[in-house]
Amino acid sequence: MSPNNLDPQDQDLLYELFALGLLEPEQMAEVRARLEAGDAEAIEGLRHATVLTSSLAYVAPESKPSSKLRRRLMLAAGAPERGFGWAWIGGLAATCAALLVITFNMREDVGNREAQIAQLQSRLVASEALVAQARDLYDFLRQPSTITVKFGDNQPAPPKGQVFLNRDRGVLLFAGNLPAMPAGKIFEMWFVPKGGGAPIPAGLFRAQDGQGVHFQRGAIDPASIAAIAVTLEPEAGSTSPTLPILFAAPVGAE
């Protein structure tokens, strides 16, 4: 086949030129007519040429379409969106994992805050107890019936301090220059009765930096007490004092 006015040099490339639309309009029309008429030579020539010309598509720089194109196409064709089932399961799993992490973090955060609140509440209770104790001591000290006894003055390095006695409330001891407490030991206060009776245990207390405060509540009779004494005893306390007596404040001296 040789279309009208075809350059003889183009004869060999006729179908490639046709496939690329590079023939003159009348030549294009002539080849097209032969194809439409089922010309076997034309069809075979074009089959061969399109293998080459369609391959020019691979010269295009590779680009990736968005995932939306696939979904739209499957929807338009009524085809199942393969992989979607796994995709949503994966998405759900990722969402659940994220929620778990958030929940865990929130729980951890809430837990931390609850611990902080409990700690603050504990401090508040302790502070309230101290305030109540301070008020109690103040009330004790300002009572007209409270007796004050000083001890240890004019000694080289003895314990010294003050003892306050109130018939209705008990005995309050402020002591300084106390010796360090050995391990497993504790200070114990004693009421030393007049008339030579055995000392009466009056409570245990600890000291810090040589300073100790002890309040033994309960009604007492100051007139029956000769002295307030302190000894070091085992931590469980003793029923009778262990020598030496660290100090003894004579009640009758005031």
């Binding site: 598509a57 691979y58 295009a60 720089p61 590779e62 680009s63 990736k64 379409p65 194109l69 696939r70 196409l73 499957m74 064709a77 085809a79 199942p80 969106e81 393969r82």
Partner: peptide, 15 residues
């Protein structure tokens, strides 16, 4: 259709 797209989708889109 899914297979057709998976096999040729990228080259078709690229050209």
């Amino acid at each position: 259709m899914s297979d057709l797209y998976d096999r040729y989708g990228r080259v078709v889109y690229s050209v």
